[in-house]
Amino acid sequence: MRSLARLRCVLPLLAVLLVAAPMAALAVDDPAEMLPDPREEARAEAIGAQLRCLVCQNESIEDSSAGLARDLRKVVREHVAKGESDRQIIDWMVARYGNFIRLSPPITISTLLLWGMPLLALLVGVIAALRVFRRRSTPESAPLSEEERARLDEVRRDA
Protein backbone atom coordinates (compact mmCIF):
# COMPACT_ATOMS: atom_id res chain seq x y z
CA MET A 1 0.00 0.00 0.00
CA ARG A 2 2.81 2.39 0.73
CA SER A 3 3.30 3.74 -2.72
CA LEU A 4 4.34 2.09 -5.86
CA ALA A 5 6.82 4.04 -7.93
CA ARG A 6 6.50 7.13 -5.83
CA LEU A 7 7.32 10.07 -7.99
CA ARG A 8 8.41 12.74 -5.59
CA CYS A 9 8.49 16.16 -7.02
CA VAL A 10 11.16 17.62 -4.85
CA LEU A 11 13.61 15.15 -6.26
CA PRO A 12 15.04 16.66 -9.38
CA LEU A 13 14.32 14.04 -11.98
CA LEU A 14 17.76 12.87 -12.86
CA ALA A 15 18.78 10.37 -15.39
CA VAL A 16 19.87 7.21 -13.75
CA LEU A 17 23.54 6.84 -13.12
CA LEU A 18 25.67 3.83 -13.61
CA VAL A 19 28.47 4.25 -11.16
CA ALA A 20 29.93 6.24 -8.33
CA ALA A 21 28.49 8.96 -6.23
CA PRO A 22 24.99 10.30 -5.84
CA MET A 23 23.66 13.11 -7.90
CA ALA A 24 21.79 16.22 -6.87
CA ALA A 25 25.20 17.55 -6.16
CA LEU A 26 25.65 20.71 -4.31
CA ALA A 27 25.28 23.71 -6.42
CA VAL A 28 26.64 26.76 -4.76
CA ASP A 29 24.56 27.81 -1.83
CA ASP A 30 23.39 31.09 -0.62
CA PRO A 31 25.91 32.61 1.77
CA ALA A 32 23.08 34.62 3.29
CA GLU A 33 21.89 31.55 5.15
CA MET A 34 25.14 31.15 7.06
CA LEU A 35 25.32 32.29 10.67
CA PRO A 36 27.43 35.39 11.32
CA ASP A 37 29.26 33.82 14.27
CA PRO A 38 31.81 31.36 12.82
CA ARG A 39 31.66 29.17 15.94
CA GLU A 40 27.89 28.88 15.72
CA GLU A 41 28.12 28.26 11.99
CA ALA A 42 30.63 25.46 12.61
CA ARG A 43 28.28 23.91 15.14
CA ALA A 44 25.37 24.18 12.71
CA GLU A 45 27.47 22.49 10.03
CA ALA A 46 28.39 19.68 12.42
CA ILE A 47 24.72 19.11 13.25
CA GLY A 48 23.72 19.33 9.60
CA ALA A 49 26.32 16.69 8.71
CA GLN A 50 24.47 14.28 11.02
CA LEU A 51 21.15 14.81 9.27
CA ARG A 52 20.21 13.07 6.10
CA CYS A 53 18.80 14.89 3.14
CA LEU A 54 15.41 13.19 2.94
CA VAL A 55 14.91 13.36 -0.77
CA CYS A 56 18.38 12.48 -1.94
CA GLN A 57 20.67 9.64 -1.16
CA ASN A 58 23.17 9.19 1.60
CA GLU A 59 24.00 12.88 1.52
CA SER A 60 23.70 15.07 4.56
CA ILE A 61 21.60 18.22 4.40
CA GLU A 62 24.84 20.21 4.43
CA ASP A 63 25.92 18.56 1.19
CA SER A 64 22.68 18.67 -0.72
CA SER A 65 21.21 21.29 -2.96
CA ALA A 66 17.66 19.95 -2.71
CA GLY A 67 15.08 22.50 -1.61
CA LEU A 68 14.02 20.62 1.49
CA ALA A 69 17.65 20.23 2.56
CA ARG A 70 18.05 23.98 2.27
CA ASP A 71 14.95 24.53 4.42
CA LEU A 72 16.25 22.13 7.03
CA ARG A 73 19.63 23.87 7.02
CA LYS A 74 17.84 27.10 7.77
CA VAL A 75 15.89 25.46 10.58
CA VAL A 76 19.10 24.10 12.11
CA ARG A 77 20.68 27.55 12.02
CA GLU A 78 17.64 29.18 13.61
CA HIS A 79 17.73 26.68 16.44
CA VAL A 80 21.49 27.08 16.89
CA ALA A 81 21.03 30.84 17.03
CA LYS A 82 18.39 30.33 19.73
CA GLY A 83 21.05 28.52 21.74
CA GLU A 84 19.54 25.05 21.66
CA SER A 85 21.82 22.06 22.25
CA ASP A 86 22.83 19.64 19.48
CA ARG A 87 20.71 17.01 21.14
CA GLN A 88 17.61 19.21 21.19
CA ILE A 89 17.95 20.06 17.51
CA ILE A 90 18.42 16.46 16.42
CA ASP A 91 15.47 15.40 18.58
CA TRP A 92 13.37 18.12 16.94
CA MET A 93 14.21 16.64 13.55
CA VAL A 94 13.62 13.05 14.65
CA ALA A 95 10.21 14.02 16.05
CA ARG A 96 9.20 15.11 12.56
CA TYR A 97 10.94 12.68 10.24
CA GLY A 98 11.82 9.71 12.43
CA ASN A 99 15.18 8.03 12.68
CA PHE A 100 15.46 8.05 8.92
CA ILE A 101 16.88 11.55 9.19
CA ARG A 102 19.80 10.51 11.38
CA LEU A 103 22.82 9.43 9.36
CA SER A 104 24.14 7.75 12.43
CA PRO A 105 21.31 5.68 13.90
CA PRO A 106 20.67 5.80 17.66
CA ILE A 107 21.86 2.86 19.72
CA THR A 108 18.76 0.82 20.54
CA ILE A 109 17.99 -2.88 20.81
CA SER A 110 17.34 -3.07 17.10
CA THR A 111 20.58 -1.36 16.11
CA LEU A 112 22.68 -3.26 18.64
CA LEU A 113 23.97 -5.62 15.96
CA LEU A 114 24.93 -2.68 13.76
CA TRP A 115 26.86 -0.81 16.43
CA GLY A 116 28.22 -3.98 17.94
CA MET A 117 29.49 -5.30 14.62
CA PRO A 118 33.04 -3.91 14.86
CA LEU A 119 33.55 -5.57 18.25
CA LEU A 120 31.68 -8.73 17.33
CA ALA A 121 33.61 -9.22 14.10
CA LEU A 122 36.89 -8.55 15.83
CA LEU A 123 36.02 -10.96 18.63
CA VAL A 124 35.03 -13.75 16.25
CA GLY A 125 38.16 -13.12 14.22
CA VAL A 126 40.48 -13.15 17.21
CA ILE A 127 38.91 -16.33 18.62
CA ALA A 128 39.25 -18.02 15.23
CA ALA A 129 42.86 -16.87 14.95
CA LEU A 130 43.68 -18.11 18.46
CA ARG A 131 42.21 -21.50 17.57
CA VAL A 132 44.37 -21.59 14.48
CA PHE A 133 47.50 -20.81 16.49
CA ARG A 134 46.69 -23.35 19.20
CA ARG A 135 45.62 -26.13 16.91
CA ARG A 136 48.47 -25.79 14.53
CA SER A 137 51.16 -25.70 17.14
CA THR A 138 50.27 -29.24 18.20
CA PRO A 139 50.82 -31.35 15.11
CA GLU A 140 47.85 -33.64 14.81
CA SER A 141 48.31 -34.79 11.28
CA ALA A 142 50.50 -37.68 10.27
CA PRO A 143 54.11 -36.87 9.43
CA LEU A 144 54.75 -35.95 5.84
CA SER A 145 55.29 -38.68 3.31
CA GLU A 146 58.44 -38.69 1.22
CA GLU A 147 56.66 -37.24 -1.80
CA GLU A 148 55.02 -34.52 0.20
CA ARG A 149 58.29 -33.56 1.72
CA ALA A 150 59.87 -33.38 -1.72
CA ARG A 151 57.08 -31.16 -2.98
CA LEU A 152 57.30 -28.91 0.03
CA ASP A 153 61.01 -28.47 -0.54
CA GLU A 154 60.41 -27.67 -4.14
CA VAL A 155 57.86 -25.05 -3.23
CA ARG A 156 60.10 -23.48 -0.64
CA ARG A 157 63.03 -23.38 -3.00
CA ASP A 158 61.03 -21.41 -5.49
CA ALA A 159 59.83 -18.98 -2.90
Binding site: R2, S3, R6, R8, C9, V10, L11, V55, R96, Y97
Partner: peptide, 26 residues
Amino acid sequence: IDWGVSGVPESFLIAPGGLIVWHSAA
Protein backbone atom coordinates in the same frame (compact mmCIF):
# COMPACT_ATOMS: atom_id res chain seq x y z
CA ILE B 1 8.38 20.41 7.93
CA ASP B 2 6.28 20.36 11.11
CA TRP B 3 4.02 17.84 9.44
CA GLY B 4 6.99 15.66 8.45
CA VAL B 5 6.35 16.25 4.77
CA SER B 6 9.30 15.36 2.57
CA GLY B 7 7.72 16.03 -0.81
CA VAL B 8 4.47 16.55 -2.61
CA PRO B 9 1.90 15.11 -2.90
CA GLU B 10 1.46 13.93 0.65
CA SER B 11 -1.86 13.35 2.42
CA PHE B 12 -3.01 13.00 6.03
CA LEU B 13 -6.36 11.88 7.40
CA ILE B 14 -7.38 13.86 10.47
CA ALA B 15 -9.89 12.31 12.86
CA PRO B 16 -12.30 14.48 14.87
CA GLY B 17 -10.31 16.10 17.66
CA GLY B 18 -7.30 16.67 15.47
CA LEU B 19 -5.60 13.28 15.53
CA ILE B 20 -3.59 12.16 12.47
CA VAL B 21 -4.85 8.64 11.82
CA TRP B 22 -3.54 7.92 8.36
CA HIS B 23 -0.70 9.18 6.19
CA SER B 24 0.51 8.54 2.68
CA ALA B 25 3.43 9.92 0.75
CA ALA B 26 2.07 8.48 -2.48
